[in-house]
Design a protein around this nucleic acid. Structure first.
Lengths: 240, 240
DNA sequence: ACCTGAACACCGTTCAAGT
DNA sequence: ACCTGAACACCGTTCAAGT
């Protein structure tokens, strides 16, 4: 036995980290394993399935009760996942039984896991849509805040993480162009497109707002949703 | 003058509707215009920019004050956008000045606009991340519910719409396989993958839950966020 | 200004054949 | 069981050349 399915998934994650989702081709994954492209189809029926397996690896044990520092993936340089919000504003009304079972912490862990891998949010969000009623994280959240709360938290987290990651890439790319600041990472980044700023086409806008802090903004959004849960739970609504 | 940039964008939207995002290649857009692929690069610098222009067309005038039935795109059969939620539960505390300036209505219009086009949510969400501080819809929402509220509503809407669309595609595809129900559309759908259910790989789960209603679920999520806004606005302290 | 024709360096996937 | 080699039908983008 020369390569297992797990080897293929691991190789794919390595390629993803270096080349991004765009450059994560079956052919490159095969090259990473020093194998012909056709060999991959012995382990995986198609690229879509491979991406789903990668998504599973990325979210890892976030859904599990003990998910503290579950860095199961770590394909090379960890890049910049840092944020680790603490404060969080009002509405502690949804605090559940066991300690550490904070919906805030689960959501934050999910987001961190996605942001820790290049284009991780895209990979996970796409694959997760299929399991919408049945994912581990969603079920765990649902136990804490109900089904509607869980879904809102989850889908907000996906959308927010995708925006954060896209934005970071654009920023890193812009930094490359202007030559300002430190180099964005250790990786070799040779795959960067020769075209800047994508959609900065017709509008003469002042560029990207450096003040929009998507890490802090995320935490405030989560608090907003949790506050809404507390409010609708306490008053009016018939939903238990 | 034979073709304008607007012609290219319109052709691209037609191809998107028929072939999906995966099949929306520069070469097919060129073929739609009966032109060589290289001709497109006279109107658009690259594919990424074309996608951004398509996104602008899809969201159309959703950000504008008078956005009632702004069906500016309509590329062929409108498919199934229907939902138009009405009820909405408690917490009307964030009602703003002018009538029709309901954040609910704006979000719903944005979602409808994305869902009206095949893979519209993916196209718009990706392109919108670049303009995060500066989009018309976000600014309009921010005037009604503040910047954090606007961003939460917006990113939730993106994540939710993407999930809804992915899920619908999977459902339509599953229906094709089982041969049950009416044909999902008039289109010829020859591009469908020969592999079912993507990630239904190891888990022996009962398949897709037909009871998860993503249209109604969306509205409840929006209400949750708005309720949270009301709660945090009224009082900083927990509960209320 | 707008387009053609040809080329370059790629894709995902299939399939017979090897070991 | 796992892989090679070759092929098929595609990609995005560039560039000299036409009108």
């Amino acid at each position: 036995m020369r390569n297992s399915r797990a080897d293929v998934v691991a190789a794919a994650l390595r390629v993803l980290e270096v080349q991004g989702l765009e450059g994560c081709s079956m052919r490159r994954v095969a090259a990473e394993l020093e194998v012909q492209p056709s060999a991959l189809y012995h382990h995986v029926p198609n690229k879509q399935t491979l991406l789903a397996l990668m998504a599973d690896e990325i979210v890892g044990g976030v859904g599990e009760p003990a998910c503290a520092a579950a860095g199961s993936v770590s394909p090379g340089t960890g890049a910049d996942a840092g944020s680790s919000v603490e404060g969080s504003s009002g509405a502690g009304s949804v605090a559940a039984g066991s300690p550490g079972a904070d919906p805030r912490r689960i959501c934050q862990a999910l987001r961190d896991a996605m942001l820790a891998v290049r284009d991780g949010a895209d990979v996970v969000a796409t694959a997760s849509a299929f399991r919408l009623g049945a994912s581990a994280v969603e079920n765990r959240l649902a136990a804490l805040v109900g089904i509607d709360g869980a879904r809102t938290l989850l889908l907000y987290t996906f959308g927010q993480a995708q925006a954060t990651q896209t934005h970071r890439q654009a920023a890193a790319f812009g930094a490359l162009l202007t030559g300002s600041g430190p180099a964005p990472a250790a990786a070799d980044r040779t795959d960067v497109d020769p075209e800047p700023a994508a959609a900065a086409d017709a509008e003469p806008e002042p560029g990207i707002d450096p003040a929009l802090d998507l890490d802090a903004s995320y935490a405030r959004g989560i608090d907003l949703i949790l506050a809404g849960l507390g409010a609708t739970k306490a008053a009016t609504s018939p939903r238990r």
